[in-house]
Amino acid sequence: MSDRPGILASLTDRITRVGEGAIGTVRAAFDLVVLFLGTLGGLFRRAGRPRGAVVEQMHIIGNRSVVFVAVTLGFLGMVMVYQTCLQFNKVTGDFSQVGVQFIRLIVSDFAPTLTGMMLATRVGAGIAAEIGSMKVTEQIDALRMSGVLPVDYLIVPRFMASVVMTVALTVLGGAIMWLAGGLTAQYSFGVNPNIFYDLSLVTGVHVGLGLVKSLSYGMAIPVVAGFCGLRAKGSSEGVGWATTAAVIGASFSVIVLDFIWSILGFMIFGGSL
Protein backbone atom coordinates (compact mmCIF):
# COMPACT_ATOMS: atom_id res chain seq x y z
CA MET A 1 0.00 0.00 0.00
CA SER A 2 2.76 2.43 0.92
CA ASP A 3 5.97 3.26 -0.92
CA ARG A 4 8.06 3.78 2.21
CA PRO A 5 10.79 1.21 2.80
CA GLY A 6 9.46 -2.14 4.09
CA ILE A 7 10.37 -2.25 7.78
CA LEU A 8 9.48 1.35 8.50
CA ALA A 9 6.18 0.97 6.68
CA SER A 10 5.23 -2.18 8.51
CA LEU A 11 6.25 -0.57 11.81
CA THR A 12 4.13 2.53 11.32
CA ASP A 13 1.40 0.25 10.06
CA ARG A 14 1.54 -1.75 13.24
CA ILE A 15 1.62 1.34 15.45
CA THR A 16 -1.36 2.75 13.58
CA ARG A 17 -3.23 -0.50 14.12
CA VAL A 18 -2.41 -0.62 17.84
CA GLY A 19 -3.46 3.02 18.13
CA GLU A 20 -6.71 2.36 16.33
CA GLY A 21 -7.32 -0.65 18.57
CA ALA A 22 -6.71 1.44 21.67
CA ILE A 23 -9.04 4.20 20.47
CA GLY A 24 -11.67 1.57 19.68
CA THR A 25 -11.35 0.08 23.16
CA VAL A 26 -11.61 3.44 24.87
CA ARG A 27 -14.63 4.36 22.77
CA ALA A 28 -16.28 1.00 23.52
CA ALA A 29 -15.64 1.45 27.24
CA PHE A 30 -17.16 4.92 27.05
CA ASP A 31 -20.22 3.54 25.20
CA LEU A 32 -20.55 0.82 27.82
CA VAL A 33 -20.58 3.39 30.63
CA VAL A 34 -23.16 5.44 28.72
CA LEU A 35 -25.33 2.34 28.33
CA PHE A 36 -25.01 1.58 32.06
CA LEU A 37 -26.04 5.12 33.01
CA GLY A 38 -28.87 4.99 30.47
CA THR A 39 -30.07 1.79 32.07
CA LEU A 40 -29.99 3.34 35.53
CA GLY A 41 -31.96 6.27 34.17
CA GLY A 42 -34.38 3.87 32.55
CA LEU A 43 -35.24 2.44 35.94
CA PHE A 44 -37.20 5.65 36.60
CA ARG A 45 -38.97 5.75 33.22
CA ARG A 46 -41.99 3.52 33.17
CA ALA A 47 -43.19 4.47 29.69
CA GLY A 48 -41.01 2.36 27.38
CA ARG A 49 -41.05 -0.76 29.49
CA PRO A 50 -43.47 -3.38 28.16
CA ARG A 51 -45.95 -4.71 30.72
CA GLY A 52 -44.95 -7.97 32.33
CA ALA A 53 -41.48 -7.84 30.78
CA VAL A 54 -39.63 -7.89 34.09
CA VAL A 55 -41.54 -10.95 35.29
CA GLU A 56 -40.95 -12.68 31.97
CA GLN A 57 -37.23 -11.90 32.14
CA MET A 58 -37.07 -13.09 35.74
CA HIS A 59 -38.43 -16.38 34.52
CA ILE A 60 -35.95 -16.59 31.61
CA ILE A 61 -32.92 -15.45 33.62
CA GLY A 62 -33.80 -17.00 36.96
CA ASN A 63 -36.06 -20.04 36.77
CA ARG A 64 -34.41 -21.43 33.67
CA SER A 65 -30.96 -21.18 35.29
CA VAL A 66 -31.89 -23.02 38.47
CA VAL A 67 -30.87 -26.49 37.28
CA PHE A 68 -27.71 -25.19 35.63
CA VAL A 69 -26.53 -23.28 38.71
CA ALA A 70 -27.52 -26.12 41.06
CA VAL A 71 -25.67 -28.78 39.06
CA THR A 72 -22.48 -26.81 38.46
CA LEU A 73 -22.17 -25.37 41.98
CA GLY A 74 -23.11 -28.69 43.56
CA PHE A 75 -20.31 -30.49 41.76
CA LEU A 76 -17.87 -27.67 42.48
CA GLY A 77 -18.75 -27.87 46.18
CA MET A 78 -18.05 -31.59 46.25
CA VAL A 79 -14.75 -31.22 44.40
CA MET A 80 -13.51 -28.35 46.56
CA VAL A 81 -14.23 -30.11 49.83
CA TYR A 82 -12.73 -33.32 48.50
CA GLN A 83 -9.52 -31.59 47.50
CA THR A 84 -9.30 -29.71 50.79
CA CYS A 85 -9.86 -32.83 52.87
CA LEU A 86 -7.25 -34.64 50.80
CA GLN A 87 -4.72 -31.94 51.73
CA PHE A 88 -5.64 -31.88 55.41
CA ASN A 89 -5.49 -35.66 55.44
CA LYS A 90 -1.89 -35.53 54.25
CA VAL A 91 -0.78 -32.87 56.75
CA THR A 92 -2.73 -33.09 60.02
CA GLY A 93 -5.67 -35.43 59.61
CA ASP A 94 -7.76 -32.88 61.52
CA PHE A 95 -10.94 -31.99 59.58
CA SER A 96 -12.53 -29.73 62.19
CA GLN A 97 -11.63 -26.53 60.30
CA VAL A 98 -12.81 -27.63 56.85
CA GLY A 99 -16.54 -26.93 57.21
CA VAL A 100 -16.24 -23.73 59.18
CA GLN A 101 -13.75 -22.21 56.72
CA PHE A 102 -15.69 -23.50 53.72
CA ILE A 103 -18.90 -21.70 54.63
CA ARG A 104 -16.96 -18.50 55.35
CA LEU A 105 -15.53 -18.64 51.82
CA ILE A 106 -18.87 -19.65 50.29
CA VAL A 107 -20.64 -16.65 51.76
CA SER A 108 -17.94 -14.08 51.07
CA ASP A 109 -16.81 -15.35 47.69
CA PHE A 110 -17.58 -18.75 46.18
CA ALA A 111 -21.37 -18.51 46.07
CA PRO A 112 -21.61 -15.04 44.48
CA THR A 113 -18.61 -15.39 42.17
CA LEU A 114 -19.17 -18.92 40.89
CA THR A 115 -22.90 -18.24 40.44
CA GLY A 116 -21.90 -15.03 38.68
CA MET A 117 -19.53 -16.90 36.36
CA MET A 118 -22.21 -19.43 35.50
CA LEU A 119 -24.81 -16.74 34.88
CA ALA A 120 -22.36 -14.72 32.81
CA THR A 121 -22.13 -17.76 30.56
CA ARG A 122 -25.78 -18.69 30.34
CA VAL A 123 -27.55 -15.37 30.75
CA GLY A 124 -24.90 -13.33 28.98
CA ALA A 125 -25.01 -15.54 25.90
CA GLY A 126 -28.81 -15.63 25.94
CA ILE A 127 -29.22 -11.85 26.15
CA ALA A 128 -26.62 -11.17 23.47
CA ALA A 129 -28.06 -13.80 21.12
CA GLU A 130 -31.56 -12.42 21.47
CA ILE A 131 -30.72 -8.73 21.20
CA GLY A 132 -28.12 -9.43 18.50
CA SER A 133 -30.70 -11.27 16.40
CA MET A 134 -33.08 -8.34 16.79
CA LYS A 135 -30.32 -5.97 15.76
CA VAL A 136 -29.37 -7.77 12.55
CA THR A 137 -33.00 -8.24 11.53
CA GLU A 138 -33.45 -4.47 12.02
CA GLN A 139 -36.01 -4.88 14.79
CA ILE A 140 -34.04 -2.43 16.95
CA ASP A 141 -34.37 0.21 14.24
CA ALA A 142 -38.08 -0.56 14.06
CA LEU A 143 -38.30 0.07 17.83
CA ARG A 144 -36.59 3.42 17.42
CA MET A 145 -38.91 4.34 14.56
CA SER A 146 -41.89 3.73 16.81
CA GLY A 147 -40.46 6.12 19.40
CA VAL A 148 -39.35 3.54 21.97
CA LEU A 149 -35.89 3.74 23.51
CA PRO A 150 -34.23 0.35 22.93
CA VAL A 151 -32.58 0.67 26.35
CA ASP A 152 -35.93 1.00 28.12
CA TYR A 153 -37.53 -1.74 26.11
CA LEU A 154 -34.71 -4.30 26.07
CA ILE A 155 -32.06 -3.62 28.69
CA VAL A 156 -33.97 -2.24 31.68
CA PRO A 157 -36.30 -5.26 32.19
CA ARG A 158 -33.33 -7.64 31.91
CA PHE A 159 -31.32 -5.48 34.29
CA MET A 160 -34.02 -5.50 36.97
CA ALA A 161 -34.69 -9.20 36.57
CA SER A 162 -30.99 -10.05 36.58
CA VAL A 163 -30.21 -8.13 39.79
CA VAL A 164 -33.00 -9.86 41.70
CA MET A 165 -32.38 -13.30 40.27
CA THR A 166 -28.59 -13.24 40.64
CA VAL A 167 -28.97 -12.66 44.39
CA ALA A 168 -31.62 -15.39 44.66
CA LEU A 169 -29.55 -17.89 42.69
CA THR A 170 -26.47 -17.02 44.74
CA VAL A 171 -28.32 -18.02 47.91
CA LEU A 172 -29.50 -21.22 46.26
CA GLY A 173 -26.11 -22.05 44.75
CA GLY A 174 -24.30 -21.37 48.03
CA ALA A 175 -26.70 -23.59 49.95
CA ILE A 176 -26.25 -26.42 47.47
CA MET A 177 -22.46 -26.06 47.55
CA TRP A 178 -22.46 -26.19 51.32
CA LEU A 179 -24.77 -29.20 51.42
CA ALA A 180 -22.90 -31.09 48.69
CA GLY A 181 -19.57 -30.28 50.35
CA GLY A 182 -20.82 -31.55 53.70
CA LEU A 183 -22.04 -34.80 52.17
CA THR A 184 -18.68 -35.33 50.51
CA ALA A 185 -16.83 -34.68 53.77
CA GLN A 186 -19.14 -37.06 55.62
CA TYR A 187 -19.10 -39.95 53.17
CA SER A 188 -15.56 -39.75 51.80
CA PHE A 189 -13.68 -38.66 54.94
CA GLY A 190 -16.08 -39.46 57.79
CA VAL A 191 -16.41 -35.86 58.97
CA ASN A 192 -19.23 -35.41 61.47
CA PRO A 193 -21.98 -33.18 59.92
CA ASN A 194 -22.42 -31.40 63.26
CA ILE A 195 -18.83 -30.22 63.02
CA PHE A 196 -18.97 -29.47 59.29
CA TYR A 197 -22.17 -27.40 59.26
CA ASP A 198 -20.83 -24.74 61.61
CA LEU A 199 -21.74 -21.10 60.94
CA SER A 200 -19.78 -19.59 63.82
CA LEU A 201 -17.15 -17.90 61.61
CA VAL A 202 -19.67 -16.19 59.31
CA THR A 203 -20.20 -12.57 60.25
CA GLY A 204 -22.24 -9.70 58.89
CA VAL A 205 -19.15 -8.52 57.00
CA HIS A 206 -19.04 -11.76 55.01
CA VAL A 207 -22.72 -11.56 54.21
CA GLY A 208 -22.38 -7.92 53.20
CA LEU A 209 -19.38 -8.59 50.99
CA GLY A 210 -21.14 -11.52 49.30
CA LEU A 211 -24.26 -9.42 48.74
CA VAL A 212 -22.32 -6.53 47.24
CA LYS A 213 -20.53 -8.90 44.87
CA SER A 214 -23.72 -10.61 43.88
CA LEU A 215 -25.55 -7.31 43.23
CA SER A 216 -22.69 -5.96 41.14
CA TYR A 217 -22.55 -9.11 38.99
CA GLY A 218 -26.31 -8.95 38.55
CA MET A 219 -25.91 -5.41 37.21
CA ALA A 220 -22.84 -6.02 35.07
CA ILE A 221 -23.97 -9.14 33.21
CA PRO A 222 -27.07 -7.77 31.44
CA VAL A 223 -25.42 -4.44 30.62
CA VAL A 224 -22.28 -6.02 29.13
CA ALA A 225 -24.27 -8.68 27.26
CA GLY A 226 -26.84 -6.17 26.00
CA PHE A 227 -24.04 -3.89 24.89
CA CYS A 228 -22.50 -6.72 22.83
CA GLY A 229 -25.90 -7.62 21.38
CA LEU A 230 -26.59 -4.03 20.33
CA ARG A 231 -23.24 -3.89 18.54
CA ALA A 232 -23.98 -6.99 16.40
CA LYS A 233 -23.50 -6.38 12.69
CA GLY A 234 -24.08 -8.42 9.57
CA SER A 235 -26.08 -11.61 9.72
CA SER A 236 -25.61 -14.96 11.44
CA GLU A 237 -21.88 -14.37 11.78
CA GLY A 238 -22.50 -11.08 13.58
CA VAL A 239 -24.87 -12.69 16.06
CA GLY A 240 -22.36 -15.44 16.76
CA TRP A 241 -19.64 -12.87 17.28
CA ALA A 242 -21.82 -10.79 19.63
CA THR A 243 -22.71 -13.84 21.69
CA THR A 244 -19.08 -14.85 22.02
CA ALA A 245 -18.06 -11.35 23.03
CA ALA A 246 -20.84 -11.25 25.62
CA VAL A 247 -19.76 -14.50 27.28
CA ILE A 248 -16.16 -13.35 27.55
CA GLY A 249 -17.04 -9.78 28.49
CA ALA A 250 -19.50 -10.79 31.19
CA SER A 251 -17.26 -13.55 32.64
CA PHE A 252 -14.30 -11.22 32.73
CA SER A 253 -16.36 -8.48 34.39
CA VAL A 254 -17.27 -10.95 37.12
CA ILE A 255 -13.61 -11.84 37.70
CA VAL A 256 -12.50 -8.20 37.76
CA LEU A 257 -15.35 -7.12 40.04
CA ASP A 258 -14.58 -10.02 42.37
CA PHE A 259 -10.98 -8.91 42.47
CA ILE A 260 -11.90 -5.30 43.23
CA TRP A 261 -14.39 -6.14 45.99
CA SER A 262 -12.09 -8.76 47.54
CA ILE A 263 -9.17 -6.33 47.67
CA LEU A 264 -11.37 -3.60 49.12
CA GLY A 265 -12.77 -6.03 51.67
CA PHE A 266 -9.32 -7.14 52.72
CA MET A 267 -8.01 -3.56 52.89
CA ILE A 268 -10.90 -2.48 55.12
CA PHE A 269 -11.39 -5.52 57.33
CA GLY A 270 -7.99 -7.23 57.09
CA GLY A 271 -7.42 -10.29 59.24
CA SER A 272 -10.88 -10.18 60.77
CA LEU A 273 -12.40 -11.19 57.39
Partner: peptide, 20 residues
Protein backbone atom coordinates in the same frame (compact mmCIF):
# COMPACT_ATOMS: atom_id res chain seq x y z
CA UNK B 1 -29.01 -15.81 12.58
CA UNK B 2 -31.38 -16.58 15.48
CA UNK B 3 -30.35 -20.23 15.33
CA UNK B 4 -26.65 -19.38 15.44
CA UNK B 5 -27.12 -17.23 18.54
CA UNK B 6 -29.13 -19.96 20.21
CA UNK B 7 -26.50 -22.58 19.35
CA UNK B 8 -23.70 -20.50 20.86
CA UNK B 9 -25.79 -20.07 24.00
CA UNK B 10 -26.46 -23.81 24.23
CA UNK B 11 -22.79 -24.55 23.62
CA UNK B 12 -21.44 -22.44 26.47
CA UNK B 13 -23.99 -23.89 28.87
CA UNK B 14 -23.34 -27.49 27.83
CA UNK B 15 -19.58 -26.95 27.96
CA UNK B 16 -19.77 -25.50 31.47
CA UNK B 17 -21.82 -28.46 32.69
CA UNK B 18 -19.48 -30.98 31.06
CA UNK B 19 -16.46 -29.23 32.56
CA UNK B 20 -17.94 -29.48 36.06
Amino acid sequence: AVGVGRAVNAQVVASAVSIM
